[in-house]
């Protein structure tokens, strides 16, 4: 198992007091993504637990893209990963954001 932590500075809206959003299922080649509003002084923090070791740079690249797309602040993103490919990770993150933003409206 490898545990990775990434932080991004963002300016997205702060939304506290709402339930966590969870999408996906941990299985081979798949992952679950949980979004929670936490006061992180404007940061978006992403914690990854993955069964595939040695892919830190690829995670960094995928999450850089994600952070640039959404510009998020005060959001804790927690990922349990069963060795998903970058494309699957991107889709799950987008799915999580879609559910998260839907619940805000």
């Amino acid at each position: 198992m490898e545990h990775l932590e990434f932080e991004f500075k963002g300016s997205g809206n702060r939304q506290v007091d709402r339930q966590a959003t969870l999408v996906g299922v941990v299985s081979s080649g798949n992952l679950e993504v949980m979004l929670e509003n936490v006061d992180l002084h404007g940061l978006c923090r992403i914690n990854v637990s993955t069964s595939a070791q040695g892919f830190t740079e690829i995670w960094q690249a995928v999450l850089n893209d994600f952070a640039a797309r959404y510009d998020l602040a005060d959001l804790q993103i927690s990922i349990n990963d069963g060795g998903a490919t970058p494309a699957v990770v991107c889709l799950r993150l987008d799915q999580a954001m879609e559910e998260y933003l839907e619940a805000l409206t």
Binding site: M1, L22, V26, M34, S49, S51, S78, N80, D81, G82
Partner: peptide, 11 residues
Amino acid sequence: LEPLGQPCSFN
């Protein structure tokens, strides 16, 4: 699961 190198699930 963690000591066995298996990913866990929040649920």
